[in-house]
């Protein structure tokens, strides 16, 4: 019993330490924005986050739009309201599904990639080498990714929203025989600027979570190849959970009143 209680105390202490260390890491990363990293140094991150993420984002968003359309038409028919499918899809995608799905996919792709890269750099002493060469590792490794994610992930979210809405029309147009202009009218009627803005603001928050969590786990990697594997898994799991928690709070903030 005492052993069990001691274990619980140890786990709680470790959790508090982790939260503290994560907070310090986040603070240091944002303080390290100056001097601004050169664009040539950030270009790789812009490319990695945007161009290389496009195909998977497009694929998942297209399926999301198609499936939503099928489900909604099936349910709305009960009430004779299937003509409203465009508006409902657009509101759901722009407010919630677009930002969250895109962030979840990017958490899997980017957080894991960043954690693996920084983790390998940590265990091969490349991060120590940076420090000895007077280079702030946060400025060199984390800040460029934060900047790139800040710009590119909201853009990817807009792209995901557009693909999902477009794909939903493919189904709705075929089953309900709606003209695209009527479909667009329906979307315009239901979708307002707050829906789009809230989705974009969410994607800004998610973009920072994805980079910071990946960087944190990579930066504090210990124990060789096994450690890199653990950091990668922890980064994806933690980023996904934090995205959902942040989504809850942001939704409550935007639409809770």
């Amino acid at each position: 019993m005492i052993y069990y209680q001691a274990m619980q105390v140890t786990k709680i202490t470790e959790f508090i330490q982790t939260v503290g260390r994560f907070s310090l890491f986040t603070g240091r990363s944002y303080r390290s924005f100056l001097p601004i990293p050169p664009f040539s140094h950030m270009f790789k991150d812009f490319y990695e986050i945007s161009v290389r993420s496009l195909p998977i984002i497009a694929l998942v968003s297209a399926f999301m739009g198609i499936i939503m359309s099928y489900q909604l038409i099936y349910e709305l028919r009960t009430f004779g309201a299937e003509m409203y499918v465009g508006g409902i899809v657009a509101v759901a995608v722009c407010r919630e599904l677009g930002p969250v799905f895109a962030a979840m996919i990017l958490a899997g792709r980017l957080s894991s990639g960043i954690a693996a890269e920084l983790g390998t750099m940590r265990i091969s002493e490349q991060i120590d080498a940076l420090e000895i060469m007077s280079v702030n590792p946060h400025n060199y490794l984390v800040a460029p990714r934060l900047v790139a994610a800040l710009f590119m992930i909201p853009l990817l979210t807009v792209f995901a929203d557009a693909i999902a809405i477009g794909a939903s029309y493919l189904v709705a147009g075929k089953i309900l025989n709606i003209h695209i202009l009527k479909y667009m009218d329906n979307i315009r009627f239901y979708l307002d600027s707050m829906d789009i803005l809230s989705g974009l603001l969410k994607s800004v928050a998610f973009s920072q979570i994805i980079v910071i969590v990946g960087s944190y786990f990579g930066y504090y990697t210990r124990g060789g190849a096994e450690g890199v594997g653990k950091s990668t898994t922890n980064a994806v799991v933690t980023a996904s959970i934090m995205i959902l928690v942040a989504d809850y709070f942001l939704t409550a903030l935007f639409f809770g009143g």
Binding site: P35, P37, P38, H41, K44, T120, M121, S124, E125, Q126, D128, A129, I132, M133, S134, V135, N136, N139, Y140
Partner: peptide, 30 residues
């Protein structure tokens, strides 16, 4: 300067970029 056991060269850079890294990032500024 510090010569690490495994070299600690940056994988993403070529050899010449590694060699001049301390000049390009002298004092922590690019």
């Amino acid at each position: 300067s510090y010569l690490f056991q495994g070299g600690a060269l940056f994988d993403s850079l070529s050899v010449w970029e590694n060699v001049v890294f301390p000049l390009v990032w002298a004092g922590g500024h690019h």
